[in-house]
Simulated assay, not measured.
Amino acid sequence: MSSKIPTVRQIAWISIIPQLLVMGLIFLIWYQFDKSNFIIFGAITYLIISQLLRRTIARAHRKGMIKVKKEEFNEAIPHFENSYQYFKKNDWIDKYRFLTLLSSGKMSYKEMALNNIAFCYGQIGNGKLSKEYYQKTLDEFPDSGMAKVGLRLLNSMSNNGE
């Protein structure tokens, strides 16, 4: 069943290089134990580690995304707020997520959280808070394309409504 809510995943291609190095290291470790199946065991190990990291460290963000896909926007907002606070407190995890989470996403979890909060407020009809969060995103991440587009859309809607 596909979601009606679009999701955007931009990739920071340069961050794939350290991930390939980590994968190579895992392959090398498995090669010491089993020379014939090290690629299979290495790939499975890499996938398990990456999924565990994302499911534990980015738990609040994942819960928020699950709520968004179910169109439960009110329930998603606290999860994204928790995600934002966690990554604000642990900025180094977000900054080096290509190693800490084995994630090659271009957008930081803090930026995603703020954009998602703004999106959720827009979906429940609270344009004022939606604008505030898009603006907060731009204040913290001036190059955020999603926030720029969201804010422009909300401003054009309010200008046409006058």
Rank of each mutant, 00 (worst) to 15 (best):
K67F: 13
L102I: 04
M107K: 12
F80G: 09
L20Q: 12
S3G: 06
G145L: 11
I17D: 07
L20S: 12
T45R: 00
I40L: 14
R9V: 10
D94P: 00
G105I: 01
I14H: 15
V68I: 15
F87A: 10
A113V: 01
Y121S: 04
D94A: 05
L20M: 15
Y109I: 03
I66Q: 13
I48Q: 01
M146L: 12
F119K: 02
K4W: 10
I77G: 11
Y86P: 02
K88Q: 13
G105H: 05
I16D: 09
I11T: 11
I39Q: 04
Y46R: 01
I17H: 07
H61P: 02
G42Y: 00
Y133I: 01
K89Q: 12
T100R: 04
T100N: 05
M23H: 12
N82L: 14
Y31G: 00
R59L: 11
S103N: 11
L20C: 14
L20E: 11
L153Y: 09
K89V: 04
L25Y: 14
A118L: 00
K110I: 02
S144D: 06
G64D: 05
Y46E: 00
R97D: 03
D143R: 13
S36T: 15
E71A: 13
L114C: 03
L114E: 04
K128A: 13
N159T: 14
Y109L: 06
S3D: 08
Q19H: 08
N116I: 01
I48W: 04
I14F: 15
A118H: 02
N160C: 03
Y96A: 07
W30G: 02
A43Y: 05
F38M: 00
Q85N: 15
N90G: 02
A113E: 04
N74V: 13
G125W: 06
K70N: 15
Q10E: 14
L153M: 10
T56H: 08
C120P: 01
F98L: 06
P6S: 12
G145Y: 11
F73Y: 15
Y31N: 03
S130D: 06
M112N: 10
D143N: 15
R152G: 11
G127H: 12
K35D: 09
R97H: 07
E75N: 14
I14Y: 15
M157V: 10
S104Y: 04
Y46C: 00
G105V: 00
F73P: 07
N74G: 14
I66R: 13
G122F: 13
I39K: 07
S36E: 15
I17M: 08
K106L: 06
G105N: 07
I17P: 01
G64F: 09
L47E: 08
L102T: 01
Q19N: 13
Q19Y: 10
N115W: 09
P6N: 12
W92M: 03
K89F: 03
N90E: 03
S156R: 12
L20K: 08
L138N: 11
F141P: 02
N74S: 14
M107Y: 03
M1Y: 10
T137K: 09
A113T: 02
I39R: 06
L20Y: 07
I57M: 06
H61D: 13
I11R: 12
S144C: 05
L52Y: 12
N126G: 04
E111I: 02
K89M: 05
E162H: 12
S130F: 02
Y96R: 12
E132M: 08
A43T: 07
S103Y: 11
S104W: 04
K95G: 04
A76I: 11
N116H: 08
F119I: 02
L138S: 07
